Computed example of a mutant assay.
Amino acid sequence: MDPAGIRAYQQQMLEAAGQAAGTPKVEETAGAQFTELVQGALEATNTSLAQAEQLTASAATGQAELVDVVTAVAAAEVQLETVMAVRDQVIRAYNEILRMPI
């Protein structure tokens, strides 16, 4: 798992979510709420990954317990897999919508 690649992917997703959220709002819609939900999940995942990376660096210098590192990495991995599963479902739904006859 490459942390730099994951951060780059998360940054792209956050920018895309920010561009979608930057459109003028007439009223609060379910789409905007979903965007905020996804953006919040990405930010939480990014924070979790950064914490795991920081704990890993601390463990390398002997300042952190191995159990804490393993727990943080596992939590970050679960969050990342959840975000990727949601992304995959959104892409599948979009593809199904594209296949619908007009």
Rank of each mutant, 00 (worst) to 15 (best):
A32D: 15
R87C: 00
Q12L: 06
T56P: 01
A52L: 12
T56Q: 11
I6Y: 01
A60V: 06
Q63I: 00
Q12H: 02
E28A: 14
E43Q: 15
L14G: 00
I102S: 09
L55C: 10
T23S: 05
Q39H: 14
Q19V: 08
R92V: 00
V70I: 10
A44H: 11
F34P: 01
Q19H: 05
K25E: 11
A72M: 06
Q33S: 15
G62H: 03
A17N: 07
T47H: 13
D68P: 00
G22K: 08
Q10L: 14
L80W: 05
Q10E: 04
S58D: 14
Q89S: 09
R92Y: 05
L49F: 11
G22L: 05
Q51C: 07
I97M: 10
I97A: 12
A30G: 12
L37G: 09
L55P: 02
N46L: 13
T71A: 14
I97N: 05
A41H: 11
D2H: 06
P101M: 11
M84L: 13
I97V: 13
Q89H: 04
M100D: 02
Q63W: 02
E28M: 12
L55G: 04
A20G: 03
Q39M: 14
G5I: 00
E81C: 03
L42F: 06
E27N: 10
D88Y: 02
E28K: 10
P24H: 08
A93N: 06
G40N: 13
A20V: 06
G31F: 08
Q33A: 15
R7G: 01
V83E: 00
T23G: 02
L49C: 14
A21K: 10
I6E: 05
D88S: 10
E65A: 14
Q11H: 05
I102F: 08
T82D: 10
P24L: 06
A60H: 09
T82A: 13
G62T: 05
A17W: 00
E81Q: 13
E96F: 04
T47W: 08
G40L: 08
M1D: 02
V26Q: 13
A8T: 11
A8C: 01
A17E: 03
K25H: 09
Q51P: 01
T23W: 00
A41E: 11
V38G: 01
G5Y: 00
G22W: 01
T29K: 05
T23L: 07
E65V: 05
D68R: 04
V67K: 07
Q89C: 03
D68T: 03
Q89L: 10
L37A: 15
M100I: 08
V38N: 01
V38L: 14
E96S: 12
A44M: 12
A16D: 09
V70M: 08
A59I: 01
T23Y: 01
R99D: 07
T61H: 08
G31M: 08
V73P: 00
E43N: 14
E65H: 07
G5N: 05
L80R: 01
E28C: 09
